[in-house]
Simulated scan of single mutants.
Amino acid sequence: MELKRSLVTALLLLASFAAEASCMVLTLQQQGTRLLLQSDADSNKTSPERSAKDISKDFRQIYTALEETQEWDGKFDARLQRLSQELYGPLLPAMRKASCIVFSIEPRFMHFALDLLPIDGSPLFVQKAVAFSLGKPRADTSSLTPKSRGLIVRDLDTDPEDGANEVRKLYPNSILHNAKNVGAKLFVEANYDFLLISAHGFVTPALGSDLADPDDSIRLGKGEINADALAKAKFKLLYLDSCQLGMSKPFIDAASRSGARHYLAPIISNESGHSSTLTIRYFFGDLNKGKTPMEALFHARKRLYQDFQSKASRTDQIFYAYPFRLYIL
């Protein structure tokens, strides 16, 4: 029986490697005053006529609209469609065929909601498994199994429906802490397969700058922690259910130094409970069944998008389904 389980685990890891290794990688960079988006698989590329500055301004306006949950209107849709045509253009045939897509970007482009742009009338994030990378993405075989150990920290304010405990039940070797009882000491030399924190996040998004704010933080009961708190920790995957932590380069860098291959967090201020609880439930539920992080997040966001198709306004539908971003480190 043990041999059979080992074989199944090996096959799941191989599938994970194959899935991520076969993704279409699109590299976004600036050359002079213009942007260049290029596929790693062939010579296809796009270089919009408009300046990088103008396109970045459009994405800042989109980011602000998402962060402030501004009502979507025709002008908002037109801006998304225009950016899709400008950036994707001749890349579209290959993108339609790709099983998954990884955007390799510079930190100054972290506010670019590239997976929100529409293709054939629907946002990219509900059509393809998508991830981001701050540099050349590395395919790997890391994946969670039911035996994986997690360090889980829950703030009752941000996780009122106890999604954290659902994850603990999926991974019974994990340890669950109440956020009000812990501080930075909890992470000193911590060594777990994954870290899940649901707590308030405080980030100053760079929005077009390569400069990162070292004061980005997560609030715990015994004080706020910044990225340095993870300096000596070791994790394979980090899932931070904390506002805007998907825009924090210091925390992403700290995750990479911890040995993690995957980092997930919302790029905007996400909901406490409700959609965030569902995202936790769907994501970790799929991981527990052998899905890769890319597949699990894709299925979670697509399911949320479909769940709220007829139950919420389009503005709320995106607010519920879109916020979380996956970085491959």
Score class of each variant (00 low, 15 high):
R149T: 05
E166C: 06
K136H: 10
K128E: 02
P137F: 15
T141K: 06
A129S: 09
D115R: 04
P160F: 11
D155M: 09
F125D: 04
L170Y: 09
L134A: 03
P118K: 05
F112P: 10
E166S: 09
K147C: 01
V153G: 09
G135V: 06
G135K: 07
A113R: 12
F109T: 13
T158C: 14
D155C: 11
G121C: 05
L156S: 14
P123G: 02
P160D: 15
K136I: 11
G163N: 11
L124T: 05
P123S: 05
D162N: 14
D157Y: 14
L144A: 10
V126Q: 11
D115F: 01
N165Q: 09
A139H: 05
V167E: 03
Q127A: 02
L124S: 05
D162C: 10
A139E: 09
S142G: 14
D140Y: 02
D162R: 13
R138H: 15
S148H: 06
P160V: 10
L117Q: 08
G150S: 06
T145M: 11
R154G: 07
E106V: 02
E161V: 02
N165V: 07
E166H: 10
S148G: 07
D162A: 13
I152F: 10
L176D: 09
E106G: 08
G163Q: 08
S143F: 09
A139V: 10
R138L: 15
K147R: 14
V167N: 08
S148Q: 03
S148V: 04
R138C: 13
S142V: 13
D120Y: 02
A131K: 04
S174E: 08
P118E: 04
F125C: 01
V153N: 06
L134F: 00
F112E: 01
N165D: 11
